[in-house]
Amino acid sequence: MPARPITGALLASELALQFRRRRTWAMLLALAAVPVLVAVAVRVSSGPPSGRGPVFLDRVASNGLFVAIAGLSLSIPLFLPLTVGVVSGDSIAGEASQGTLRYLLIAPAGRVRVLLVKYAASVAFCLAAVFVSALAGVLIGALLFPIGPVTLISGTEISPPAALGRLALVAAYVSVSLLGFAAIGLFISTLTDVPVGAMAAAVVLSITAQVLDSLPQLEWLHPWLFTHHWLGFIDLLREPVSWDSFGDNALVQACYVVVFGALAYGRFLTRDVLS
């Protein structure tokens, strides 16, 4: 059964293609710039008054490790969905518009496998994006600010290595948060041959979901929105760790992955590939 090696080779070539593109690097650089900007801005100014601004922004000056978390929480509403939307929205529609989708499907791979590989590449980008953002935050924070014991939001102090562990948890949480959105982007991408349209639609959808999430009149809808738990990573910074939102978030994202994965499958298998 040659299925495994082919999937592996397909995934490897897809990942190589993905991370060799200049666009991917530009987006990762932009994401890395967010925590750098935050750190520099706090360094040159006196910082916001306590209790205002994004989570942890007011603590950045006292501890460099907060830069990574402040940077992530700034990137979550717009920059991360923007870049993930570009990658996942482009995944099928981009190939279709360039006329390469046909050749991809001529290989004895099957459409399901192409779809899976495309989604895997989007997921890889999600992981890379969050990792780069967190890493840039830690590095610039260590460079510009003192590193010391970190105060969790329950008032408990933990050592810097333990804090890095918490940061890894937060990064995992944020990566998981993006999985559902990447599946939505993939589905939109199977609908059209115009990649820009798919990207824009995906990004607009993420913003719409966040707007709906902020309307108190739609409270019944909130737990079902894929953006609802995006900022819930704060529960990982409590002592003891509250895993509830991690579980809820993972469940919601899994539902979105399954539903939109199935829709993408239905659409992609029935569509006529003309170009």
């Binding site: 399954v258 539903v259 199935a262 499958y265 239905g266 029935t270």
Partner: peptide
């Protein structure tokens, strides 16, 4: 055939949403 291929794609969302409700 095209209609049949949509079946899994339609069933899964219905099951997920039904389960959630």
């Amino acid at each position: 055939r095209r209609w049949q291929r949509w079946i899994p794609a339609a069933v899964i969302p219905v099951v997920v949403v039904g389960g959630a409700l």
